[in-house]
């Protein structure tokens, strides 16, 4: 199938970039290790492993936007995409080819993070498997954001917007590093209107086996993921037509 050939290429391009491997896997693991050591020396409930691991998983996924957007923006900037536009690949092939291969990478990244968390003391239960599967809507959100940014910005702009701005937004507005209630006010309201904190809370609920606690967070995350995907597809088709 044509789309698989294109997907495989996108997978290889991402996985063979050492910087992607560092930020995608190495960096979240370093954060897990570092914060676990801090927590052992100065106990903070927020950094207990069952609380911390879901947050790091979501934070790690935010880098997928950078990887995806950089790949697409570079393809657009070079003649590579133009070459492929003259082949029988359809618009659907392009969109699926950019979206789908990143989802298994996201699942693998989450599994590695939870695996390291188990080594650091997280109780190994079936909930971890469900937690990994529940990262899929979060993964789709970040990957679609990548499709959107890659379709709109140049690869240099993508570096600033996805690499710096989005990862910081995810970090600050997700309740991973500090309790949003401590800040309160407009900051907390804005955070609650965005999907990042809901992604973290959903993962935390799944990990502790609290089925009821998954709601309404999963609706926020799924809603954002669906909306961003629709906008991203529109943006990609628009740039395709322009090219």
């Amino acid at each position: 199938m044509r789309v698989f050939a294109f997907s495989k290429r996108n997978d290889l391009e991402i996985l063979r970039d050492p910087l992607n491997l560092f930020f995608g896997v190495g960096f979240p693991i370093v954060l897990l290790l570092l914060l676990t050591v801090i927590q052992r020396n100065i106990p903070v409930a927020l950094f207990e492993i069952e609380h911390l691991a879901p947050g790091i998983v979501v934070f790690g996924l935010s880098f997928m936007t950078l990887f995806s957007a950089t790949l697409i923006a570079k393809d657009r900037g070079s003649s590579f995409l133009q070459r492929l536009y003259t082949t029988p690949l359809t618009a659907v092939d392009f969109i699926l080819g950019y979206l789908l291969p990143l989802l298994p990478i996201c699942v693998a990244q989450s599994a590695i993070c939870y695996g390291v968390a188990v080594l650091l003391g997280l109780r190994a239960t079936a909930h971890i498997v469900i937690s990994v599967l529940c990262t899929l809507p979060v993964a789709l959100l970040f990957v679609s954001l990548g499709l959107l940014c890659g379709s709109v910005f140049t690869d240099k702009q993508v570096g600033g917007i996805c690499g710096a701005l989005l990862t910081n937004l995810t970090a600050w507005l997700s309740g991973i590093w500090f309790d949003l209630g401590l800040v309160g006010g407009a900051f907390q309201k804005i955070a609650n209107l965005l999907p990042f904190v809901h992604a973290v809370e959903m993962e935390r609920a799944v990990l502790r086996g609290d089925a009821a606690g998954v709601f309404p967070h999963i609706w926020w995350v799924s809603g954002y993921a669906a909306a961003v995907t629709v906008v991203a597809v529109g943006a990609f088709l628009r740039q395709m037509k322009r090219q």
């Binding site: 391009e13 063979r16 070079s78 590579f80 070459r83």
Partner: peptide, 12 residues
């Protein structure tokens, strides 16, 4: 088409 700029996938 063989475009003007070398259009290859660099990491492949």
């Amino acid at each position: 088409v063989s475009p003007q700029e070398t259009a290859v996938a660099p990491n492949l």
